[in-house]
């Protein structure tokens, strides 16, 4: 992964809708929060758009901790998107 890259992971139906479990993304200038990244990813392909259209039912973790839409994203981060958890 190069300088401004992040790793993005998808789980459960987000992974199925998008079609990949993970992808390396070059952070475009101005993509500094979870919300901005979500918007950028949604615009990147129809599959991403369909997955993220579920809006409030998509959860996020940054570096393996739950993260709110305004949480910061930095180069080198691991960002995961997934539905609300259903274990137990």
């Amino acid at each position: 992964m190069s300088g401004a890259g992040i790793k993005v992971l998808y789980f459960a139906w987000l992974r199925e809708k998008i079609g990949v479990a993970e992808e390396d993304i070059e952070l475009a200038p101005g993509i500094a929060t979870v919300a901005a990244l979500t918007e950028w990813l949604s615009a990147s392909s129809p599959r991403h758009e369909a997955a993220f259209a579920a809006g409030k039912t998509v959860r996020c973790a940054v570096n393996q901790d739950f993260a709110a839409p305004d949480a910061p994203i930095r180069a080198g981060d691991e960002v995961a998107f997934f539905p609300p958890v259903t274990g137990g």
């Binding site: 997934f82 539905p83 958890v85 274990g87 137990g88």
Partner: peptide
């Protein structure tokens, strides 16, 4: 565990 641990059931 049911609300915080990242598991998903199908």
């Amino acid at each position: 565990l049911k609300t915080k641990a990242p598991f998903w059931k199908k």
